[in-house]
């Protein structure tokens, strides 16, 4: 009863903010822009049929059609929209969750109720996650329906993006909670969460560069430090990798490459094969498990502070 009340309140609070509706509007806009294009047996159209190209390569009967749609959904939508814009908006929308809970005059009433402070903290934490779960579900559902009706591909694996998005959000929401409890300020909590996001992203980006351009041996300590940081910190960058793997998407160039140069094409196919091999070696369990372990430590720290402080 108490947990449900907390979740419901978090949701009401989030809905009260304009950002909830902004996020819904953005979701609708993306779905609408997707719906403006369509595929059929002859080719594709855009601007709701205003322009069209008839080509067997673009038709739904094309052997790469389903793969191309999966790539658009799993790669562009998941990685670029959900992974960055969606997460950013979700963090902004939930930055006030803990500061508003701890507002003077409100927190006194709440902590005097017959519930453990840990229960209260975790209930509110869960409330923030549920808000994002709802937003992600709406977004994925409407884009799934558009892809099915307009692009003629019912990609059921696309629904994996919902839990993935929530998990990615939770990697950062733990910082929102921690900074919210420490500062009691939505703005400070928001700013510090974005700083934390950057600090998590930076070692991953550095690691990627080091892999692509192996440094000289004297930089080995930097490499080791980067590797250690990447293994401990939440792996936000892995999520797009996981999304591509679970939705069955491929790198876009692999599918859409059209070059007259056979050599260039062969090189590209070889690169794609290497990516596939790396993907096969990649462990989703290890990536998400270690990230959740780090998140748990931050949540414990935030919860401990929340339970110990006076109001």
């Amino acid at each position: 009863m108490q947990t449900w009340a907390l979740i419901k309140d978090s949701f009401r609070e989030a809905i009260d903010r304009k950002l909830f509706w902004v996020m819904l509007a953005i979701s609708a806009l993306i779905a609408l822009s997707m719906a403006a294009s369509g595929f059929d047996d002859r080719g594709m159209s855009i601007l709701f049929g205003y322009m069209r190209w008839n080509s067997p390569d673009l038709a739904v009967t094309s052997p790469i059609h389903k793969q191309a749609v999966a790539t658009i959904l799993g790669h562009f939508i998941a990685d670029h929209f959900l992974g960055w814009v969606g997460i950013g908006l979700a963090i902004i929308a939930t930055a006030g969750t803990f500061p508003s809970l701890m507002e003077r005059g409100t927190i006194e009433v709440i902590v005097s109720k017959p519930m453990r402070r840990w229960h209260l903290f975790l209930g509110k934490y869960l409330g923030g996650m549920v808000f994002v779960l709802v937003q992600a579900s709406i977004f994925v559902l409407i884009t799934f329906l558009v892809a099915g009706t307009r692009w003629k591909v019912w990609l059921w694996s696309y629904f994996w993006l919902i839990p993935l998005f929530v998990v990615l959000f939770s990697y950062l929401f733990c910082f929102t909670a921690l900074f919210g409890v420490l500062t009691r300020s939505p703005l400070a909590s928001l700013a510090l969460t974005f700083v934390a996001w950057f600090l998590i992203w930076a070692p991953q980006a550095t690691y990627g560069l080091l892999q692509a351009f192996p440094p000289r041996p004297e930089f080995n300590p930097v490499v080791r430090f980067t590797e250690a940081a990447c293994s401990i910190l939440p792996k936000t960058g892995d999520i797009s990798f996981v999304a591509i793997k679970l939705t069955g998407a491929r790198l876009p160039g692999d599918l859409l490459w059209r070059s007259d140069s056979q050599t260039e094409h062969d090189e590209f196919v070889e690169n794609a094969r290497q990516v596939d091999e790396e993907s096969a070696e990649f462990s989703i369990t290890r990536s998400i498990g270690s990230s959740l372990a780090f998140e748990a430590v931050i949540v414990l720290l935030a919860g401990w502070r929340f339970c110990r402080r006076d109001f």
């Binding site: 309140d9 009401r12 009260d16 508003s100 009433v109 005097s112």
Partner: peptide, 12 residues
């Protein structure tokens, strides 16, 4: 319990 200067969530 009714605390001094209590505040209730304005969206409720």
């Amino acid at each position: 319990y009714l605390p001094e200067n209590h505040r209730f969530p304005p969206y409720l």
